[in-house]
């Protein structure tokens, strides 16, 4: 079972993801502030980060960049309600596995997470 970090500026959105993924047996920690998420990832092992793009201070893409620097093996799914080609290209270039657009339903989220975590 994977250790998953969820970062979304709307805490409820993060909690929803947590609920879905915990039912699949994953260990999920939710953050709404980017610095707390980064500090957590620096101290604890994380397999997968699910990142919103519109955050409070940084963008999700910048957070991805930081995470990849400190934990190169970390996998990431970007999840945004405001998709742009620029952030999509940049995220994939920085090593995000998926770029997903909200609204995302339970089945789609589960499928993407399975896919990204791999066999």
């Amino acid at each position: 079972m994977a250790k998953v970090l969820v970062l979304d500026d709307v805490i409820d959105a993060g909690v929803l993801i947590k609920r879905i993924l915990e039912r699949k047996g994953h260990q999920v920690t939710v953050f709404s502030k980017e610095e707390e998420a980064l500090a957590f990832a620096a101290e604890n092992p994380v397999d997968l980060a699910i990142l919103d793009i519109k955050l409070k201070k940084m963008t999700g893409v910048e957070v991805l960049d930081e995470l990849k620097k400190s934990t190169p093996g970390i996998r990431a799914i970007m999840l945004t309600g405001y998709p742009t080609l620029e952030t999509a290209r940049e995220s994939l270039r920085l090593g995000a596995s998926e770029y997903c657009v909200k609204p995302i339903d339970k089945d789609e989220l589960e499928a993407k997470v399975e896919e990204v975590l791999g066999p």
């Binding site: 998709p83 080609l85 999509a88 290209r89 770029y99 657009v101 909200k102 609204p103």
Partner: peptide, 15 residues
């Protein structure tokens, strides 16, 4: 909203 999502995935695929 759902259209926007489908639409974006296609845009991404065409990029």
């Amino acid at each position: 909203e759902y259209l926007k999502k489908i639409d974006f995935y296609i845009q991404m695929g065409l990029d």
